[in-house]
């Protein structure tokens, strides 16, 4: 199931996006390039500020950690030297979480992270911030079984699937750039290098394999659900956006 995305729906922000996938709904807004505080100004590149607001309550150290991760990752995809001495401010508000999110046995920041990354990217696209590449992210969970094989991997599972597969032995979040470079990895649990490597390979296929039709079809059989290339999904979102913006041209 592909994620849903609505772009540029907040009119006061320079760019915005609402992203819904598997019960996670996040609203993202981007302001930029705007004036930067003197203290944070960098002479040769833009400053990036990420704010994450949880669904309930005010931010805690957990949100600060996620913000740090997002900041590090987005810094490598935003073309910061092209807008020096400015600020790009990204605000992500978690709108709703699935009811089962807290009881999956996987750290809630891991299940949320891919969705936050996608929302941030969509909001940046909507704000037309210069980017050097794009980004796609996926969560992979390995349930504890006696025979760890490739087909037991859960690719971007829903909260209910995680709950059913409990106990989860390890959970991995991968983010890949448009060129297929691994930008971010957060893995938690107990696992071997080979399991991690297999998970990384599977994540790469879901995120950015161009000609992954055969592989995806295989996954479809294994998981019994529709495989979706996230890179393709991102392209279709951008295509819709560009078509929408070009509608003055096609109008008669």
């Amino acid at each position: 199931m592909a994620p849903d995305a609505v772009l540029s729906h907040l009119h006061r922000a320079d760019g915005s996006a609402t992203y819904t996938h598997n019960g996670y709904c996040i609203i993202g807004a981007v302001n930029g390039p705007i004036e930067v505080l003197r203290r944070d100004e960098r002479p040769e590149e833009a400053t990036i500020e990420v704010n994450v607001r949880p669904a309930v309550g005010v931010g805690s150290p957990k949100e600060r950690h996620i913000e740090t991760l997002l900041h590090n990752t987005l810094r490598s995809i935003i073309s910061t030297p092209s807008i020096p001495r400015t600020l790009v401010q990204i605000t992500l508000q978690v709108h709703s979480l699935p009811d089962e999110d807290s009881s999956t046995g996987v750290s809630p920041s891991l299940t949320l992270l891919p969705h936050l990354l996608h929302t941030a990217l969509l909001a940046l696209l909507s704000a037309s911030i210069p980017l050097s590449t794009t980004l796609t992210a996926v969560l992979i969970a390995l349930p504890s079984t006696n025979t760890p094989t490739a087909c037991t991997q859960l690719l971007s599972p829903t909260a209910i699937e995680l709950l059913r597969a409990k106990p989860i032995r390890s959970a991995h979040v991968f983010a890949f750039s448009g060129e297929g470079k691994m930008l971010l990895n957060e893995s938690d649990g107990t696992f071997s290098y080979e399991e991690w490597d297999e998970a990384a390979e599977a994540a790469e296929e879901v995120c950015c394999k161009e000609d992954g039709a055969v592989v995806l079809a295989e996954n479809m059989e294994v998981d019994g659900r529709e495989g979706e290339n996230l890179d393709g999904w991102l392209r279709s979102v951008v295509r819709t956006k560009v078509e929408h913006e070009q509608r003055w041209k096609s109008a008669r």
């Binding site: 490598s76 470079k181 691994m182 990895n185 957060e186 893995s187 107990t190 696992f191 399991e195």
Partner: peptide, 19 residues
């Protein structure tokens, strides 16, 4: 490499370290 010795992997900030 087959033993479950890894407890956590964290990597962020760039794309140099691959599999």
């Amino acid at each position: 490499t087959k033993d479950g010795i890894l407890k956590r992997l964290e990597k962020s900030g760039g794309g140099v370290v691959e599999r």
